[in-house]
Design a protein around this nucleic acid. Structure first.
Ligand SMILES: [Mn+2]
Ligand SMILES: [Mn+2]
Ligand SMILES: [Zn+2]
Ligand SMILES: [Zn+2]
Lengths: 169, 169
DNA sequence: CGTTAAATGCGAATGGGTCGCAAAAGCTCC
DNA sequence: GGAGCTTTTGCGACCCATTCGCATTTAACG
C-alpha cells in the first residue's frame, strides 16, 4: 500500500476543492477519469483536440475510452470550465479545447504556417457589452476567430511578391 | 426550343458579369452547376447548410451531386464570395453558408429557441482594425459568434425563475 | 469544331462524434 | 464501511458531414 504522493496528486488536493465545487454542482460525480482529463487540460499549454486528449489520457490509464473523453468535454463545456474552438478548421473539422482559467482571448489562425496567435484588447470587452445592450441577448459563450496571414508569413509573401513582379518585368 | 426567359434568368444576366468576373479569375469555369448554386445562395434569405443547398439544387436539376455542392462551396469560400458559419453547432456539426454581398454582421444563436440573430456595431470594425494594428496579422476571414439567450427567451426564463422561487417558499 | 484541362457524377471511404447497453464506480445514509 | 440507488464508464456499432479516386462530361480557347 503506497502512501507516497506525487506532486501532481498533492497539487490535485488544491484543485480538488475547486473542481469538486464546480463538478459536484449540478450532480456530476468526481470520477477518476474526469479528474485525470481536467488535469491534463489544465496542465496542457497548447490547444488540445479530443484525439490528443484521449492519447494523453491513455498514457496514464490505457483503459479510458474515447466516449468518456467526448462525454467529459461536453460536461466541461456545459459547466463553462473549458471553451471549444474551431481555429478556422485549419486542421479539418475537429474541435479544440482550452481551460477557461486563463484570461480571455481570441484566436488568429495563419493559413500559411498554421500558427495560432492568441490576442485580446479592451475593445473586445466593449463589443460584448454593446452586443448585450443593443440586442438584449445574454451571451453565455462567445467565439471570435480570424484566419489570414501572420506577420512573418505576410513579410515573406510580400518579398516573394516583389520577387515575382521583378521577374515579370 | 423555348426562348422564354424567366425573371430569374434575366436577373442572371446582370449577375453573370459579376460572377464571371469573380469565378473566371483564378481559372474557374462557369458551369451550369456553379451558376445554379450561386444563384440559390444569393436568393436565399436564411442560412443554408450543404444538405439544404443540395436539396434546393436538385429541385432545379436532379442530376446534381452532393460532391459538386461541397466542391462549389469550397471554391466560393476561396474566392470570398461566401462565408462559412458554425452557428455555435446549434444543429450538430454541419456548417452554414451566406453570401458576402450582404453587409457584414455576426451571429447570435439562442440555445433555447434556436433563433439566429444577426447584428453589427461599429465597434466590430474597430476591433478588426485594432487586431491588425496590434498583431500585424492580416485578417482574411473573421467569424464572431455567440451563444446564449435571446431577449424573449431570457424574459421567459426570468419569469419561470421567479415562479420557481415563489414555489420554493 | 477539335483539343485539352478542368469539372462533374458516382459510390466507396474517412473521420469526428454519438448511442444503447451491461458492468463498474460514486454518493448518501445509516 | 457496507447496502442501495444513481450516475458513469467501456465497448462497439452506428451516424452524419464531408472527402476521394476515377471514369465521363463539359467549358474554354483557338
Ligand atoms: Mn465547427
Ligand atoms: Mn487559446
Ligand atoms: Zn504564418
Ligand atoms: Zn431564444
Amino acid at each position: 500500500m503506497r502512501m507516497g504522493r506525487k506532486s501532481s496528486e498533492s497539487m490535485n488536493g488544491a484543485n480538488r476543492s475547486y473542481l469538486a465545487q464546480k463538478l459536484t454542482k449540478g450532480g456530476a460525480r468526481l470520477t477518476a477519469q474526469r479528474k485525470m482529463l481536467v488535469e491534463i487540460i489544465q496542465n496542457s499549454t497548447g490547444h488540445l483536440d479530443a484525439a490528443s486528449l484521449l492519447r494523453l489520457a491513455k498514457r496514464r490509464d490505457s483503459r479510458i475510452h474515447r466516449a468518456t473523453v467526448y462525454r467529459t468535454l461536453e460536461l466541461l463545456k456545459r459547466l463553462r470550465l473549458i471553451d471549444e474552438l474551431d481555429l478556422m478548421h485549419l486542421e479539418g473539422e475537429k474541435h479544440f479545447y482550452e481551460p477557461r482559467t486563463r484570461s480571455e482571448h481570441f484566436h488568429l489562425a495563419c493559413f500559411r504556417c498554421g500558427k495560432i496567435l492568441e490576442h485580446n484588447t479592451p475593445t473586445f470587452e466593449r463589443l460584448k457589452k454593446e452586443i448585450s445592450e443593443q440586442t438584449g441577448f445574454k451571451i453565455e459563450v462567445i467565439r471570435l476567430e480570424a484566419g489570414g496571414q501572420c506577420e512573418e508569413c505576410r513579410a515573406q509573401a510580400d518579398s516573394s511578391q516583389s520577387d515575382a513582379s521583378r521577374a515579370a518585368r
